[in-house]
Simulated assay, not measured.
Amino acid sequence: MGISILLADDHALIALGIKKILETMPDYEMVGHMQNGREVILYLEKENQVDVLVLDLNMPVMDGMQLLSYLNRNYPDLKKMVLSAHHTQSTMEICRNLGVNGFVGKDACFEAFQEAIEVIADGGEYFQPLSINKNIQNGHRNCLYQKLRVEYSLSDRETEIIQLILNQIETKQIAKNLNLSPLTVKTHRKNIFRKLKVHNVAGLLGLIKEHPGL
């Protein structure tokens, strides 16, 4: 068998389209189609071989963001490519922080999808650039952390810490990186979550996903 591709997307038409594309690529094979993140985990726990996981962000039961957080901790070497309609700079940045190797919008052409799969399977990264119009429209405002700082009145230190949190850095390591005590970092985390009106990192990721314009 060639390079194995596992798809996680709850839309049957998308799955059929991906399968048809892969049939035109002799060295690639779609080995499974999962409907949600929980099914992906069950598939991987059975020690099934997967070279590249292609996943959507919006799925029932366990969505893409939740799945990526789990995979980043438990399957860090698995190559992952997001295929999503939410093609924004902030969404791509969050996915990159969660260990994704590539990101392609669902409005991409077949050639872009094929190129992304090939690059990622070969160990590289492929993040589809935003269109020129989107870049002009958004400009530097697409900086996720700057937008969070302005939108929620975060301090420079809180903005720095939230960036480390989104990079999956633990409290002790954050404290070491910033030359702070763990207690001080915990206080900052508490204040950040209070300002953003979330309770944990999952809530923070959900906030960003619900507001892709951040």
Rank of each mutant, 00 (worst) to 15 (best):
V54P: 05
N167Y: 02
I117S: 15
V150P: 06
G32K: 07
K195A: 03
A85E: 07
S4R: 13
R189A: 02
L22W: 13
L98C: 11
L178R: 08
V61I: 02
M92F: 01
L83H: 09
L16S: 11
E45F: 05
V82P: 10
I192P: 15
S90H: 03
K20S: 10
N72Q: 10
L166F: 01
I162T: 13
K186D: 11
G206Q: 05
E39K: 04
L16C: 02
I120P: 08
I165C: 11
D10E: 10
S84F: 06
H199F: 10
L71G: 11
H188G: 08
K209G: 04
S131L: 00
H188C: 12
G2L: 07
L53T: 04
V40N: 07
I165W: 04
G139V: 04
E23T: 04
L205H: 14
V201P: 07
F113E: 15
I120S: 07
G206T: 02
H199I: 13
M65E: 14
N48R: 12
E29A: 11
N142V: 06
I3C: 09
I21C: 07
Q89R: 10
M34C: 11
V201D: 08
E125I: 12
D10H: 06
I14P: 09
M59T: 07
I21G: 01
P129C: 08
K186E: 13
D107I: 06
L22G: 06
S131Y: 00
C95D: 15
A15N: 11
M30E: 07
F113Y: 08
N135S: 09
A112I: 12
I132D: 13
G17V: 06
G105M: 00
L205E: 15
N97V: 01
T91G: 00
S181M: 06
P212G: 00
A202T: 07
Q35R: 06
V40I: 05
E160T: 03
E170K: 14
L83Q: 05
Q49R: 02
